[in-house]
């Protein structure tokens, strides 16, 4: 099953990835090939199989409601590409 370039563009939008037109072309071909390959799974009858998201047989892991030291504002923002005072700066977001 081949993917269309439109599908690839839509997925790129969902994933927030900018591609040049020739990359869209390349990815459409490569992803189609991979999707073809994974389609072999459709051969298997899994109607009565429960999905397995996690192999661990554990549950109920909690931590106590205790306050731990936070980072200082400087530590928190040390890696920020666009620090604005005590804030992270981003281009204007229209609500």
């Amino acid at each position: 099953m081949a993917l269309t370039e439109d599908q690839v563009r839509w997925v790129a939008h969902l994933a927030r990835l900018e591609f040049a037109p020739e990359e869209i072309e390349l990815f459409t071909a490569q992803l189609s090939q991979i999707v073809d390959y994974v389609n072999q799974l459709q051969k298997l009858d899994t109607e009565k199989v429960e999905p397995l998201a996690h192999c661990l047989p554990i549950s109920n892991v909690f931590r106590p409601d205790e306050v731990q030291p936070s980072l200082t504002v400087d530590e928190a923002l040390a890696n920020a590409p666009d620090r604005r005072g005590a804030y992270y700066g981003v281009p204007a977001v229209l609500d």
Partner: peptide, 9 residues
């Protein structure tokens, strides 16, 4: 979801 089912198998 299909992949998770086969993962169980």
């Amino acid at each position: 979801l299909k992949a998770l089912k086969v993962r169980r198998l």
